[in-house]
Simulated assay, not measured.
Amino acid sequence: MKKPQTAADTRPWRDPGAKPFVRIRNVTKKFGDVFAVDDVSLDIFKGELFCLLGGSGSGKSTLLRMLAGFEDPTSGSIEIDGQDMASVPPYRRPVNMMFQSYALFPHMSVEANIAYGLKRDHLPKAEIADRVAELLRLVKLEPYGKRKPHQLSGGQRQRVALARALAKRPKLLLLDEPLGALDKKLREETQFELVKIQETLGVTFIVVTHDQEEAMSLATRIGVMREGAIAMIGEPTDVYEFPNSRFVAGFIGSVNMFEGVVVEDEPDHVRIRSTEAGCDIYVNHGVDCAPDQVLWFAIRPEKISLSRERPEGDANIAKGMVEDIAYLGDMSVYQVMLDSGKRIRVTKANALRGDPDAISWDEEVYAHWGGNAGSVLTS
Rank of each mutant, 00 (worst) to 15 (best):
M98H: 00
R164T: 13
A165H: 11
M108F: 12
L118Q: 01
M108R: 15
E142C: 03
D130P: 03
M97S: 12
D81H: 02
A103K: 07
A165L: 13
Q156I: 06
L162D: 05
A133I: 02
L136Q: 01
L152T: 10
P94S: 04
S109P: 09
M97E: 08
V110W: 00
S77A: 15
Y91I: 06
Y116I: 05
A86C: 10
Q151A: 14
K119Q: 14
I78M: 07
I128E: 07
E127P: 02
Q158V: 08
Y116H: 11
R164D: 11
P89K: 06
G117Q: 11
D81L: 04
A129E: 14
H107V: 10
K146L: 14
A161F: 09
R93C: 04
Y102D: 01
E134T: 12
P124D: 09
G155L: 01
H107E: 12
H122L: 11
M108L: 15
E111A: 13
A163S: 15
S87A: 14
K140R: 10
R120S: 12
R137G: 10
L141S: 05
L152W: 00
Q100H: 09
M98Q: 09
L152R: 09
A86Q: 13
Y91V: 09
P143A: 04
E79I: 06
V160N: 08
K119V: 12
G145M: 02
R120D: 09
R157P: 08
F99M: 14
E111P: 01
D121L: 15
A86P: 08
E127F: 03
S109K: 12
K146I: 11
Q83L: 11
P90V: 09
K125Y: 06
L162A: 06
I80Y: 03
R137E: 14
A129M: 07
P89Q: 04
H122M: 12
